[in-house]
Design a protein around this nucleic acid. Structure first.
Lengths: 216, 216
DNA sequence: GGATATTGACTGACTGGTCAGTCATAATGA
DNA sequence: TCATTATGACTGACCAGTCAGTCAATATCC
């Protein structure tokens, strides 16, 4: 190589990219530092010139994921247009990412498991889910202002929406036969129809109140 | 006769119970056979008198979970009463199990990750999710017969419901601050309201058709 | 009863292998 | 030359699984 002329930041990124590829292929637990070094085309010792430890590498992978997640949420919360359309768009985007690049999502499961190990784990899944809940709670607040929601909503409902998205992702990961792309619309249908302001006339026609619109 | 006989099956179960406790406490990856032996109050070597390997123990834990899961689903599918009420009851039961005994669910995440490792893993999460989807698809079919559902439903919607339940479970596991018990009703609200036959009068009052019920 | 033999559940030190992380040495360009 | 970067053999810790040996409970015989 060319000592003194290497771009440290670029090299760090190369290693990180290699690590993501190997993690996705073999799973975090089964990945050896040697595998990552080989994937990056360098020696094992060199990995340690750029990352202090295996855990530091894990943390970097996690941060990359979290940044991607945060970007998607941010665009949904602060974007233009009606809030519910942004929510629907976000669901489509998340499922789309899964279809386009399975690695990030696949790795998340390993991170999940890895985070269980030590108390001082660098991977804080609670924060990731917390961010997602906060974003969707905000979207629901915006939609509420727009007057398109039922009025008995709480943050619990945001939890359910986050859960529906995450749960569908997991199923798609476990079972590659599931059509991830085609789940976006059912998710939107189930969630949003359940969130829209109920019709004055309830679905089963009990409680029909003709007096609210007197006949001419 | 044999000089001394122990109840092999009972001892197997003791070890399994100990394993579940340790897995729940430390996570599967971080659990040593020694830990399990200590928890069961026996020596390490004795564990191998009852289970061939660490993986065999993992498989037994998984089968126990799957049996519990299957029992809940079976009761919902074949129980008495309207299908949607059984569906709602099942959601309450699943969340209730999480509240009462966090271990089984917690372990599932580890099993999830463990299943990623080898191709010949004893843990088949795809089958677990597949069973759940099949059960809920059947519940929706029953509910459809009862005439209480929208008519454009597919198995995809069952996937969303499974996902919502599973996703909420995960969030509760990661973040013990979340009130698992209080999520059952929001899940039911979001899912079922999204599934019921839409009112003739759409929520935004466009398409209002007073002619359907003529004034006296 | 009690002396002796038999059984098999149980033990834990040991083995063989794995792997994260280290460091002495080499290579390279300024 | 010399500072910087790269290397890969090496180390020490760790752990799943083994197996030769222990011992308490039972069986059998006198």
């Amino acid at each position: 190589m060319s000592p003194r002329t290497v771009d440290k930041a670029a090299r760090r990124k190369e290693i990180l990219t290699a690590a993501v590829r190997v993690f996705a292929r073999k799973g975090f637990a089964a990945t050896r530092i040697n595998d990552i070094a080989a994937e990056a085309g360098i020696a094992k010792g060199s990995v340690y010139l750029y990352y202090d430890s295996r855990d530091a590498l894990l943390e970097a992978v996690f941060e990359g994921y979290r940044a991607m997640s945060a970007a998607i949420l941010d665009r949904a919360v602060n974007g233009p247009g009606p809030a519910l359309e942004r929510l629907a768009g976000m669901v489509r985007e998340v499922l789309g990412v899964l279809v386009a690049r399975r690695e990030p999502a696949r790795i998340m499961v390993d991170l999940w498991a890895a985070s269980r190990d030590a108390a001082g784990s660098p991977v804080d899944m609670a924060a990731v889910y917390g961010d997602a809940r906060a974003a969707i709670t905000e979207l629901l607040r915006q939609a509420g202002k727009e007057g398109v929601l039922r009025e008995d909503l709480s943050e619990r409902h945001a939890t359910v929406i986050v859960g529906a998205i995450e749960g569908c992702l997991l199923q798609c990961l476990v079972d590659p036969g599931l059509p991830a792309a085609e789940l976006a619309e059912p998710i939107i249908q189930v969630c949003l129809e359940g969130l829209r302001r109920p019709a004055v006339h309830t679905p089963d026609f009990r409680g029909y109140e003709p007096a609210t619109r007197p006949c001419p």
